[in-house]
Structure formats: C-alpha cells, structure tokens
Amino acid sequence: MNAPMNRIGVIALGEVPDLIPQSIAAHIQGMLHAEVDVLPPLALPSGAFDQGRLQYSASLLLQHLETLSLGLCTKVLAVLDADLFVPIFSHVVGEAQQGGKHALVSLYRLKTHGVESPSELSLVMERAAKVALHELGHLYDLHHCTDPSCLMHFAGGVEDLDKTFMDYCNYCRVFLRDALLRERAQPDEDE
C-alpha cells in the first residue's frame, strides 16, 4: 500500500536549542505515525513584535508563516523562544489556526527557572512537546477536551501542563485518527 503520508514540518523561529524541534518531531512521529520534517530555522520577523506590549503577536506570526513556502508539509509547527500574545490574553504558550495549517509553540513561559540545566531542558522539551501536540490537535480541528489528563485539555499554565499526560484521551485519539485519515485521502495539491 502506498498511502500518502501526513507530512508535518517543525521549524524554529529565531534562537531555539536544536534539540527542541527534534524532540517535538520525534514525539509527533511516535504519536501520529506521520512523516515529520525538521525544517531549516528562520529568523523571527521583527514586524510581528508589538512595541506596546513588548511581546510577539501570535496572529502576525501566523500570517508571516502563511507567506512562506515550506515544502510539501500539510501542517507546520513553528517553535520560538519569545513571549507570545493574542489581543484578549496577557500571553499564550501556543496558538493554532483551528482546522488550518500553521501553529506556534512558545518556549518563553515553559521554563521554570530560566536556567538551561540538563534537567530544565528536559522539562522544557517535555512541555514543548505537549504544547506542540495540543496545537497540532487544533490544526486537525480537535477542540479543547474536558478530560484534564488529555493533551487537548486547555492548560492555563505550566502547572496544568505538567498534570496532563503525553497522550490524547480515547475520544480525541479517535477524532485525530479520523482527521489524519481524511487528510491522507485528499488528493495532493502539489502533485
């Protein structure tokens, strides 16, 4: 069987430890059985920086990603180490286009102490993978889940994030599998 694969790209925007996009890619591969490309890093677009809030605008960054040509990827996750906001919230650690193509993962608030010790890096990697899998769920049109242990449960902070398992609940797993199969069944636009 030569079923077309779901192809997901992970890209660093600005300064991000190499291990993190790789770790996120590995988690996605293991969980979704999708083909994952770690794409060459790009600079953070200065135009997305809001001088009033001193944070990056998530919507402007997502708009920026839309302008880029990022290979054959059906979904793209951008990882950055900068503080993100959306107009109604003081900050966000991730943002995705519901049912769309692009999502963001911010490492800025995933660090507990701001120290890059091996244990801290490992913790940040785990949290980033959780946020990435959560945002990826939104890209596949999954909604927030009421099961507090599910990856699709909304986590308001790192404490909540640490309480979720590195897995989707049974329902979300089924919805995600259906969405992945639907995507595979679609004709490839680039071919």
Binding site: I88, F154, D160
Partner: peptide
C-alpha cells in the same frame, strides 16, 4: 480585566 490570563477565561 483586559488582557486576562488564559486560565482566567477558562475558569
């Protein structure tokens, strides 16, 4: 209170 913490809206 605008802008609010993400978990405030959730609560």
């Amino acid at each position: 209170l605008k802008p609010f913490q993400p978990d405030q809206l959730s609560l």
